[in-house]
Measured scan of single mutants.
Amino acid sequence: KKKIKIYIENENGEKKTIEIEVEGDIDEIAKELAKKYNVKIVKIEP
């Protein structure tokens, strides 16, 4: 498992940072999160 930080922006332009532990393809997981929460991924840090 890797701990990563995902910087997101919602439709109101509010920026947030999510810190999660992931296993597998980080890009795939980030895309799923973006779709699920309707946010834009700004940056992903390993």
Rank of each mutant, 00 (worst) to 15 (best):
K1P: 10
K1V: 12
K1T: 11
K1R: 12
K1N: 07
K1W: 07
K1I: 12
K1G: 08
K1Q: 07
K2N: 09
K2G: 09
K2S: 09
K2M: 13
K2P: 07
K2L: 13
K2Y: 14
K3N: 06
K3I: 10
K3R: 15
K3D: 01
K3E: 02
I4E: 00
I4V: 14
I4P: 00
I4A: 06
I4K: 01
I4S: 02
I4H: 07
I4R: 02
K5F: 07
K5H: 06
K5M: 09
K5W: 09
K5Q: 06
K5S: 09
I6G: 00
I6S: 00
I6D: 00
I6R: 00
I6N: 00
I6V: 09
I6H: 00
Y7F: 09
Y7P: 00
Y7R: 04
Y7M: 08
Y7G: 01
Y7S: 06
I8A: 05
I8S: 01
I8Q: 00
I8F: 15
I8V: 12
I8M: 14
I8L: 11
E9Y: 04
E9L: 07
E9P: 01
E9Q: 07
E9V: 09
E9A: 03
E9N: 02
N10S: 13
N10K: 13
N10C: 14
N10G: 08
N10M: 15
N10R: 11
N10W: 15
N10Y: 15
E11R: 11
E11Y: 10
E11L: 12
E11H: 11
N12K: 13
N12R: 13
N12Q: 13
N12A: 12
N12S: 08
N12L: 13
N12V: 09
G13D: 03
G13L: 04
G13I: 00
G13W: 02
G13V: 00
E14Y: 10
E14R: 07
E14T: 08
E14A: 10
E14D: 11
E14P: 02
K15L: 14
K15D: 05
K15I: 15
K16P: 01
K16W: 15
K16S: 15
K16E: 09
T17C: 08
T17W: 14
T17G: 03
T17M: 12
T17A: 06
I18A: 01
I18G: 00
I18R: 01
I18Q: 01
I18T: 01
E19R: 03
E19L: 08
E19N: 05
E19T: 11
E19S: 07
E19V: 12
E19F: 09
E19I: 13
E19K: 05
I20M: 14
I20N: 00
I20F: 08
I20L: 14
I20E: 01
I20H: 02
I20R: 02
I20Y: 05
I20P: 00
I20G: 01
I20T: 03
E21I: 13
E21S: 08
E21D: 09
E21F: 13
E21L: 09
E21M: 10
E21W: 14
E21A: 06
V22F: 12
V22S: 07
V22L: 08
V22G: 07
V22T: 12
V22R: 04
V22W: 15
V22H: 07
V22Y: 13
V22E: 05
V22C: 10
V22I: 12
E23N: 08
E23D: 12
E23G: 06
E23R: 08
E23V: 12
E23C: 14
E23I: 13
G24A: 04
G24K: 03
G24I: 02
G24D: 03
G24S: 04
G24Q: 02
G24F: 03
D25G: 03
D25Q: 05
D25S: 09
D25L: 04
D25M: 04
D25E: 07
D25I: 04
D25R: 04
I26P: 10
I26K: 01
I26L: 10
I26M: 06
I26V: 11
I26H: 04
I26C: 05
I26Q: 03
I26A: 06
D27V: 09
D27F: 12
D27C: 15
D27G: 08
D27S: 09
D27W: 14
E28C: 10
E28S: 11
E28N: 05
E28G: 06
E28I: 08
E28K: 11
E28L: 12
E28Q: 12
E28M: 09
I29Y: 14
I29V: 10
I29R: 04
A30C: 12
A30G: 03
A30T: 08
K31H: 07
K31G: 06
K31T: 07
K31N: 11
K31D: 07
E32M: 09
E32Y: 09
E32T: 06
E32N: 09
L33G: 00
L33P: 00
L33V: 05
L33F: 11
A34H: 05
A34R: 06
A34L: 06
A34V: 06
K35L: 08
K35T: 06
K35Y: 05
K35P: 14
K35I: 08
K35H: 05
K35E: 08
K35W: 04
K35R: 12
K36G: 03
K36D: 12
K36R: 12
K36N: 05
K36Q: 07
K36C: 15
Y37H: 15
Y37T: 14
Y37I: 14
N38V: 02
N38M: 06
N38A: 05
N38R: 09
N38S: 05
N38F: 05
V39F: 14
V39D: 07
V39S: 13
V39P: 06
V39A: 15
V39T: 05
V39Y: 09
V39G: 15
K40R: 06
K40E: 08
K40N: 09
I41F: 03
I41P: 00
I41L: 04
I41M: 04
I41K: 00
V42Y: 01
V42E: 04
V42N: 04
V42Q: 03
V42F: 01
V42H: 03
V42L: 12
V42K: 02
V42D: 03
V42T: 06
K43P: 02
K43Q: 07
K43N: 06
K43I: 10
K43L: 11
K43D: 05
I44T: 02
I44Y: 05
I44H: 02
I44M: 06
I44P: 01
I44V: 08
I44F: 06
E45D: 04
E45Y: 07
E45G: 05
E45K: 02
E45H: 04
P46V: 15
P46H: 14
P46Y: 15
P46A: 13
